[in-house]
């Protein structure tokens, strides 16, 4: 074997193993959904015939429409608000540069290193005092101002042509009109990519909802699977079906919009 073909042999070997290991847990999830709980914890990795029973049991234990609604509602509202606030800030920072704002932007960089764990205790007391524990608002409000998304929009705004803005000014448009009617349509793909990432972030959020959302009627899918899997007598078949439902939305978005997905992920670095 020549050096080169050995190298490519190793290359295909490593990549195949990595790809297999990456995909296997997804396969395990789908197989698990068709098996009984006892089979799953015994490691059975072949398809079974318990899928329908698991679905029926999940439906009996969890108010699925309600929980799915909660997840979608929180993720969608958060995403819309986050995009509006972050794109406005990105626009504000990049178009209207000034010394004071540059300094403020530097301050944002520092705030990136504040971990959520350091905020959760005061945030909890804050929302408790406001009587907002167990509400959608308590989940949505702290998630709206996202520094990463602000960065992302500021970076993307560098590519926004200033001539367009100047022309709009000559046409007599006010600044917010320029933002809504010129900037927004031009930056469509930036918004689309950010939407995907922010949606996913909110859909998958766990720690803060775990603290805030207390009743079954308010729980999200992520909280529901966590609770099902840690129940007194967990039914892993049911858990697997619920896990599929939790994973499916982001998986579908990924496969339909792969390019935008990756663009959004890479967005804030450059």
């Amino acid at each position: 074997m020549t050096n080169r073909s050995l190298l490519s042999f190793v290359q295909y070997g490593v990549l195949s193993v990595a790809a297999f290991l990456s995909v296997f847990p997804f396969f395990w999830m789908v197989v698990g959904a068709t098996n009984t709980s006892a089979d799953i914890i015994k490691g059975k990795a072949t398809f079974g015939s318990n899928l329908w029973t698991n679905i029926v049991n999940l439906n009996a234990q969890v108010d699925l429409p309600r929980v799915l609604f909660n997840s979608f509602y929180i993720a969608i509202i958060s995403t819309i608000l986050t995009l509006v606030v972050a794109s406005a800030a990105g626009y504000g920072f990049e178009i209207f540069r000034s010394k004071a704002r540059e300094r403020l932007f530097g301050g944002l960089l520092l705030m990136l290193s504040i971990p959520f764990a350091a905020l959760m205790v005061p945030l909890f007391i804050m929302f408790a005092n406001a009587g907002l524990i167990n509400t959608y608002s308590a989940i949505i409000a702290p998630s709206v101002a996202n520094i990463f998304v602000i960065f992302y929009f500021r970076q993307a705004t560098k590519a926004f042509p200033h001539e367009l803005r100047d022309a709009a000014k000559i046409d007599g448009l006010k600044e917010y009109q320029i933002f809504a009617r010129v900037y927004f349509p031009v930056m469509r793909s930036t918004y689309a990519a950010a939407t995907i990432i922010v949606f996913m972030l909110n859909w998958n959020n766990y720690l803060w909802p775990l603290i805030v959302l207390q009743t079954n009627e308010m729980k999200t899918m992520v909280l529901t699977i966590s609770s099902l899997a840690s129940a007194y007598t967990p039914d892993f078949g049911v858990v697997m079906v619920a896990t599929i439902l939790t994973t499916l939305p982001t998986l579908i978005i990924f496969f339909l919009l792969q390019r935008l997905f990756v663009q959004g992920m890479l967005g804030s670095v450059k």
Partner: peptide, 24 residues
Amino acid sequence: FNAFSREEVEQKLQTQLASGTIDG
């Protein structure tokens, strides 16, 4: 009847009583 793990029952009770929220 709502089933949660014992830990979850205690955590929920503690969280809500500490926060003064009673709705849940």
